[in-house]
């Protein structure tokens, strides 16, 4: 679905490379989380997927189309939907339904089709009640849900979320996480850029970026159990792993897991083993 072939990119001619020889394949229907410290290149990578940036060398192929091809731009951007970090910098209109209509209007769809898509999109993010509301009166989490609806109204096959929860409170982040999971369950390819571990843990695959390259890649369990490597990459180690390590240091071994719920189960089992 998405393919990066030897992609390199620098913001300016003499600047260090933001992306260095990236090779990455994301299959259709996958849920991939991309994490990494600030400046690791994760946002730059995300913005190559919908051709906001084009590689200096190498190719980015999305659904069979080359992002460097100007003719494909329209098709690529209607296939890849992108939600950004700042809820306030994505709203175009003064009424929620007008903002959701913006994308379909750009796709030159007729009025009735647009109306149908607005209904559908607002329903998916549970914001139908706010259809006629002024977006500036909404909370951060609600604004991001409208932003997602505005993208869904374009019926993309791929959803790229670039740190969607960075500026939200925990409740707002939970809402976004839930929607991303639901959409992926229904077949949407989801790419989530984040620095919150809980968000990355829900993905099928986690990619850790460092200084423009892919440092780690694997399932959440595989990636998050690599404590030393994670610390070197300035990433947090999940609580469950930290606790398991602390217990091991005190002579109690528990099977490794990144899920606090599973850890709890293991501890209960350990207790019953006497």
């Amino acid at each position: 679905m998405i393919e990066f072939r030897h992609v390199s990119y620098a913001y300016e001619d003499d600047a260090p490379q933001a992306l260095h020889d990236i090779d990455l394949t994301i299959a259709e229907g996958e849920f991939v989380a991309i994490i990494g410290h600030n400046g690791s290149g994760k946002s730059t990578l995300a913005q190559h997927i919908n051709a906001l940036y084009r590689p200096d060398s190498g190719q980015v192929i999305v659904d069979g189309m080359d992002t460097a091809d100007p003719e494909s731009l329209f098709a690529i951007r209607s296939t890849v939907g992108m939600v950004f970090q700042n809820p306030d910098s994505q709203m175009v209109a003064s009424v929620v339904e007008d903002d959701v209509a913006f994308g379909p209007e750009n796709l030159m769809l007729p009025h009735d089709e647009i109306a149908e898509r607005i209904d559908e999109a607002l329903g998916t993010v549970a914001m139908q009640r706010y259809r006629k509301a002024d977006p500036t009166t909404l909370s951060g989490g609600q604004k991001q849900r409208v932003a997602i609806a505005s993208i869904l109204a374009m019926r993309p096959k791929i959803l790229v979320l670039d740190e969607p929860g960075s500026m939200l409170d925990p409740r707002g982040r939970r809402g976004i996480r839930r929607i991303a999971r639901e959409l992926n369950d229904e077949g949407m390819t989801v790419v989530l850029i984040t620095h919150f571990l809980e968000e990355a843990a829900a993905a099928d695959r986690v990619i850790v970026m460092d200084d423009g390259t892919i440092a780690l890649s694997g399932t959440p369990e595989e990636v998050f159990s690599q404590r030393r490597r994670l610390r070197e990459l300035h990433m947090d180690v999940p609580y469950a792993i930290q606790i398991a390590d602390a217990l091991a240091a005190r002579g109690y071994d528990v099977p490794e897991t990144i899920d606090l719920g599973k850890l709890e189960g293991e501890l209960c089992a350990l207790r019953s083993s006497r």
């Binding site: 906001l52 329209f74 951007r77 910098s89 175009v92 339904e97 750009n106 007729p110 374009m154």
Partner: peptide, 19 residues
Amino acid sequence: LAYAMESRCYARGEHRTHY
């Protein structure tokens, strides 16, 4: 906003419908 609008296929003003 410019990035967001471009991502939603906004090109120039003429070739779009109106809700």
